[in-house]
Every structure is written in structure tokens, then in C-alpha cells.
Design a protein around this nucleic acid. Structure first.
Length: 155
DNA sequence: CTGGATCTACTGC
DNA sequence: GCAGTAGATCCAG
């Protein structure tokens, strides 16, 4: 198990890899609570994040291994994984695809172990308001705007 | 347009 | 079981 902090425009993130360097979890780094090892100087995941925050469109190619997700959670995350860059979907539309309820979708997203990589920030409420986000609402707004800006530049 | 009641599917205790 | 959700809908005021 390897974990390290990463400073980003949306705050300090805690990155956790397993023994085989697969990405296991991304979370907000809580002030001084979490113990962590030194940041590896060269690691693919660092470059992926730095590319992303610099405005490049990243591929989700890095191997990850997440633990103990329910069948339902995996289905939700699988749908979310395919929302295109800069687009948004709603809790309700995802729920309809799974014959579920928006609330259940929200719950599944809340437990998304890899925010940013699995872009649950692209899921908003039907009425256009932002919804929630495990890395904080400011982060969600920032990410959505960031991706809009990237799309704009590509046109 | 607002807030409250009620419905909903799902998870964790 | 039950209570707690990152939602949706309906209806009264």
C-alpha cells in the first residue's frame, strides 16, 4: 500500500495505490490526519493528474483496482465513466437507465473511490443545480468549468 | 416561485 | 428490520 499527497487546483488530494501500484482510492487529504509516504517523483499517475489540471484531455488507461463495490455501484460507475468530456448527465437519467431512483444513484456516486478519474462531477441535478460532491462543491464547480474551458479551446 | 410532504431504491447498522 | 441519503415530483400557499 502506497499513499501520497498531491497538490492540485482543487486542493490537496490523497492518492492511494495498492502493492502493485494500481490506483485504489482518491480522496480529499484531511489536514495532517492521514499518514503518507513520500511522493514518488516519477509515477504515471502524477503525470495523468498534472496533464488533466493543465487542460489536456486524459485517457483513463491507468490500471485501477477498487474494493468492495456492490453490483449496483459498479453499474452506476460504469455509466458515469462513459459520460464524455465536458458533458453532464443527471441523477435521474442514470436512475432511469438502471430502473432505479436518483437517490440511490447519488449514494453510489458518493462512494465513488476514484473521483476525477471516474468523472462523477459530470452528474448534476435535473433542475440544473450542482448536486453534491465527495471532494467538495467548489471542486465540482471547478472541474465542470475546467472541462468546459478545455472543450472551448479544442473548437 | 417557495417549502413541505411523500415517494423512491439502495446501503449500513 | 430501520434510518439515512450528492434526487424527483406534486401540491398548497
Amino acid at each position: 500500500m502506497i499513499s501520497f499527497h498531491l497538490t492540485t487546483p482543487i486542493g490537496n488530494l490523497l492518492i492511494i495505490l495498492d502493492n502493485t501500484f494500481k490506483l485504489t482510492r482518491i480522496a480529499l487529504a484531511e489536514r495532517k490526519k492521514e499518514s503518507y509516504s513520500k511522493t514518488p517523483l516519477e509515477h504515471p499517475i502524477i503525470k495523468i493528474f498534472s496533464d488533466y489540471f493543465q487542460g489536456k484531455v486524459i485517457e483513463i488507461s491507468y490500471p485501477f483496482s477498487v474494493q468492495k463495490l456492490s453490483c449496483f455501484e459498479m453499474k452506476v460507475l460504469e455509466i458515469v465513466r462513459h459520460i464524455p468530456y465536458g458533458n453532464t448527465e443527471t441523477y435521474g437519467s442514470i436512475a432511469r437507465k438502471l430502473n432505479s431512483s436518483p437517490r440511490a444513484v447519488g449514494q453510489a456516486l458518493k462512494r465513488n473511490p476514484l473521483p476525477i478519474i471516474i468523472p462523477c462531477h459530470r452528474v448534476v441535478r435535473t433542475d440544473g443545480s450542482i448536486g453534491g460532491y465527495s471532494l467538495g462543491l467548489e471542486a465540482k464547480k471547478w472541474l465542470i468549468e475546467h472541462e468546459k474551458a478545455i472543450l472551448y479551446k479544442l473548437r
